[in-house]
Simulated assay, not measured.
Amino acid sequence: MTVADVHATEPAHDELAAWLRLLETPGIGRQRARRLLRAFGGPREIFEASPAAWREVLDGHKVCEALARPPEGHDALVTRTGQWLQQPGCHLLVLGDPVYPSTWMELADPPLVLHARGRLELLGIGALAVVGSRHPTPQGADNAFQFSAALSQAGMVVVSGLAQGIDGAAHEGALSGPSGTIAIVGTGLDRVYPRQHHALAGRIATEGLMLSEHVLGTPPLAPHFPQRNRLIAGLGRGTLVVEAALQSGSLITARLAMESNREVFAIPGSIHSPQVKGCHQLIKSGAKLVETTQDILDELHWGTSAPVSTGQEKAPAGSPMAAAVQARSDDTPEDPLLDAMGWTPTTLDALQARTGLPTSELNHRLLELELSGHVVRLPGPLFQRQACA
């Protein structure tokens, strides 16, 4: 699908006002709103109907009283949204719009309205969700970046939630390839959360696509993020969990993907690391263990003539990934200390026992490996080997 093929049908002023009023009426919610839409055909027709007609559809529910008057601040919201829609790349998609994601129509509670900013044509390309911990290890962040870069190179759009950690790394990696990324957020699109992703959000709005089901001005409220997860899981052909603890919200996304009969993939890690126990639980529950991007492409029967990334992409200087992912060369001969370290976070005492090196020499060698990007220092203090793809 090309840019020329994509046209969102922007609602007229009266229709825009009716949609926003339906969204913002207290107590209505998506389920009751859909019942009203099925009964009356459209938002303007809902508000042209009588209170008695509303009560028949909603079984006399008391929220009918709220429908009778516009919510507080409604006129200001309509004006602000209309002005926002005049900005380049800004669109409002409603149920029934030709550009509205067809996969979301399969959800039990699809969004009534989508605020979109960026490249709408990305909605017509095969996508994969990439999610994980907000506090990943350096290796986990690197994996998210490299896998997403390779997926983008292979022609897939990477979908994530703009959160700290794995989400941000996934967006960065996808932007390094040709297919780009979609960020589905839990705030209004005139806000950025977390704040440190302001520059990243700007890049996605230009080079990728930002989506939200929330009206402009919506702050980052806790209930919105689990709701957002259903959209992340439902947009693509599957979900890749890169690194997740047992209580990670990423497991919610994975569960929703499974319930939607979509593929779930997980990257394994050390059995001693709490950061990957959620991934291991998913694998035990039927998720596919993946070690390379090709494992995902093969499982999805994704054919492409584009070369699959070799994992050599680098995060842009100054990006959120730059602090976590360093450029590394892969031509360093195998090091006995790296052999002794293995792939599990290891203490200095354990390394000394395995190698027999004096403390001063061991510290010197660890510093060299840390500066070259082959080892990272973790809290504890622990040391972990970094993969040099």
Rank of each mutant, 00 (worst) to 15 (best):
G165Y: 09
G165N: 09
G165Q: 05
G165E: 02
I166S: 02
I166Y: 13
D167R: 03
D167L: 11
D167I: 08
G168F: 02
G168P: 04
A169C: 14
A169G: 11
A169K: 04
A169E: 10
A170K: 12
A170C: 15
A170T: 13
H171M: 08
E172V: 12
E172C: 10
E172W: 03
G173F: 06
G173L: 12
G173R: 06
G173N: 12
G173E: 05
A174H: 12
A174W: 08
A174E: 04
L175S: 09
L175I: 09
L175Y: 07
S176A: 15
S176G: 09
G177H: 09
G177Y: 08
G177I: 05
P178I: 08
P178Y: 03
P178L: 14
S179Q: 13
S179W: 07
S179V: 03
G180H: 01
G180L: 05
G180E: 00
G180A: 01
T181Y: 02
T181Q: 05
T181N: 10
T181W: 06
T181R: 07
I182Q: 02
I182K: 02
A183V: 08
A183N: 07
A183R: 05
I184D: 03
I184C: 10
V185L: 04
V185I: 15
V185M: 07
G186T: 00
G186M: 03
T187R: 08
G188Q: 12
G188S: 14
G188C: 12
G188T: 11
G188H: 11
L189W: 06
L189K: 05
L189Q: 10
L189F: 13
D190M: 11
D190N: 10
D190R: 11
D190Q: 03
D190F: 06
D190A: 10
D190I: 03
D190P: 05
R191T: 09
R191M: 10
R191W: 00
V192L: 04
V192D: 11
V192S: 06
V192T: 15
Y193D: 03
Y193I: 07
R195Y: 06
R195L: 13
R195S: 15
Q196M: 11
Q196T: 08
Q196R: 15
Q196F: 14
Q196E: 13
Q196D: 04
H198N: 08
H198M: 13
H198D: 10
A199R: 15
A199Y: 07
L200N: 07
L200C: 05
L200M: 11
A201M: 12
A201K: 05
G202A: 04
G202S: 07
G202K: 00
R203H: 12
R203L: 14
R203V: 01
R203N: 07
I204M: 14
I204P: 11
I204S: 13
